[in-house]
């Protein structure tokens, strides 16, 4: 069963990565998807990011009981966690829920209302037309969202540190400037790109092979979210093993 889906998924990806019939036409779709994925998710990503940073700061402060460790470490920990784990992974899980379900239900609806058949009859390579723009838009916009998220998360940490009195602004900033390893940034960005591919391609797959009606479209979109989330965490582990 697993191999059946894996095989079908690989074939679908192969079909969608074919050279487009006409780039100018695809370009419009890519822009449309970029707006939908990028601009459409800035709001939710901003909100969760600020809270992620805030929570990390407050909880790290709580766990730091030793007087030997300077409080500025809190800033450093929030920074590193945001870049490496919180912004890419939690961000991706939220985007799987938003963008993933959106993609699956959009493509699924097109399937059950015969719109995909209509494309095929015209001679359009439907996986290419429907899926490729989403993947391209995803792997460009999601890393950008992650970068925004990192900044807001660090900002959220600073605000929370100030408000709770756990760490002063200048200590926090000292921490932010201390001892930065670029591998963290690399790993964070690699994660973001891999997650983006997972979310867009898995959700497209679930939508594309929907059979039936409105009910099944709902099921596909739920499955898209569940499978994307599991694969994101799995990929998280693999990338951590490989890169760190």
């Amino acid at each position: 069963m697993l191999f059946y889906h894996l095989g079908k998924y690989v074939l679908l990806m192969k079909a969608s990565l074919k050279r487009p019939e006409k780039w100018s036409f695809y370009w419009k779709e890519i822009i449309r998807e970029m707006v939908s994925i990028g601009v459409g998710s800035v709001g939710i990503i901003s909100i969760i990011s600020i809270f992620m940073g805030a929570v990390t700061t407050v909880q790290t402060a709580f766990q730091l009981v030793s007087n030997l460790i300077p409080l500025s470490v809190i800033g450093q920990i929030t920074r590193d966690n945001s870049i490496l784990e919180l912004s890419p992974t939690i961000g991706a899980l939220v985007l799987a829920g938003k963008t993933g379900s959106n993609i699956a239900s959009q493509i699924g609806t097109m399937r059950v209302t015969e719109q995909i058949d209509a494309l095929e009859v015209m001679g359009v390579n439907s996986p290419g037309y429907l899926i490729l723009p989403k993947i391209i838009a995803g792997i460009t916009m999601i890393p950008m969202l992650v970068i925004v998220s990192v900044f807001l998360s660090i900002l959220g940490g600073m605000i929370a540190g100030n408000l709770s009195g756990a760490v002063t602004q200048s200590e926090y900033i000292t921490g932010l400037q201390a001892d930065f390893k670029t591998i963290l940034l690399t790993a964070g960005m690699v994660k973001a790109i891999v997650y983006a591919f997972i979310i867009t391609s898995v959700s497209s797959y679930q939508g594309f092979y929907t059979e039936g009606g409105a009910l099944e479209v709902g099921e596909s979109s739920t499955r898209a979210v569940v499978v994307s989330c599991i694969l994101i965490l799995f990929a998280d582990y693999i990338i951590a093993q490989l890169l760190l």
């Binding site: 019939e21 006409k22 036409f25 209302t113 015969e114 719109q115 058949d117 209509a118 359009v124």
Partner: peptide
């Protein structure tokens, strides 16, 4: 390209306007 088809549920692309729907294959091909 020589085949036209009318589907049972019309199968119009619902994210596109009527004009874009009719223009679709002209744009593509």
């Amino acid at each position: 390209k020589e085949i036209g088809m009318l589907f049972q549920g019309s199968a119009l692309f619902d994210s596109l306007t009527v004009q874009e729907n009719v223009m679709f294959s002209l744009n593509m091909f």
